[in-house]
Each structure stands twice: as structure tokens, then as C-alpha cells.
């Protein structure tokens, strides 16, 4: 499984580095940054280049409607790969920890990692 993270700026590259602090170096993963001034076409070409080769591909993007997402769905019209959006730290760790991760399961598990800690503890001062 090849993993490609496409984000606004270096968020994806740094996210991958941070995740690797926990799960170790991921040889089959890379991140692609969209920087101010980069064209969607240029981004598309960099993603296509990263997709080169055989095997299954999973693409993580940062946000629905953003250029990394828009360019990825443009590519998805022509070739099959898994596409997720809303990538975050716990999600990516969970993904790398399991072989042959089921994507539906990954999304469901990830939703459970978003927690308003005070609420869970019953420690909320209303009005603040």
C-alpha cells in the first residue's frame, strides 16, 4: 500500500514526520505540499508522479473543497485509489498501525478520537 498525504502547505509533511515519531519510518509514504502560488495542474502532476508504480494507493487530504482535495478527486475520475479527507494525527497513526486497514473502520475510529475533554470529565464551567 502506497500512502500519499496532500495538504495546504507543509502540514502533511510535518504530520508524517510527527506520526513517524510514534510508528517509525514509513518507507511507502510521502507528503505533497501545496504552497502559495502553486497551480492545481502542477499539484496534479506531482500527485500523479507519486502514484507511479504498482500496488494499491491511499490518498489523505486535509479538507473538503480545498485544492488538494479538488485535485485528488479530479484524478479519482480516471483511476481507482482510496481517498480520505480530514486527515489528522490519531487517524494516521491508526492507519499505519494496522496492515490492510479498512477505510470505513478507520473513519469511524477516528471520529471517536475527537473529544472535548472537560465534557467527558463533567468539568465544564458554563459560559466559558
Amino acid at each position: 500500500m502506497k500512502t500519499i498525504i496532500v495538504t495546504h502547505g507543509d502540514f502533511g509533511r510535518e504530520l508524517l514526520k510527527s506520526v513517524e515519531m510514534i510508528v517509525g519510518k514509513q518507507e511507502n509514504a510521502c507528503a505533497i505540499s501545496l504552497n502559495p502560488g502553486d497551480s492545481p495542474e502542477g499539484l496534479k502532476n506531482r500527485i500523479l508522479e507519486a502514484m507511479n508504480g504498482t500496488g494499491h494507493i491511499c490518498v489523505f487530504t486535509d479538507m473538503y473543497g480545498g485544492t488538494p482535495f479538488n485535485v485528488s478527486i479530479d484524478i479519482l475520475q480516471d483511476r481507482y485509489f482510496h481517498l480520505l479527507t480530514g486527515v489528522n494525527f490519531p487517524m494516521l497513526i491508526e492507519y499505519f498501525m494496522k496492515e490492510d486497514m479498512n477505510m470505513d473502520e478507520l473513519v469511524e475510529t477516528s471520529k471517536g478520537t475527537l473529544v472535548f475533554v472537560n465534557r467527558e470529565m463533567g468539568h465544564v464551567q458554563e459560559g466559558k
Binding site: P40, M63, G65, T67, N70
Partner: peptide, 10 residues
Amino acid sequence: DRLLHGQVVV
């Protein structure tokens, strides 16, 4: 010409 994108959503 990007129609919907990050700045629009956010």
C-alpha cells in the same frame, strides 16, 4: 475559476 476551495469554505 477554482469554484469551491479552502478560502471559500473556511
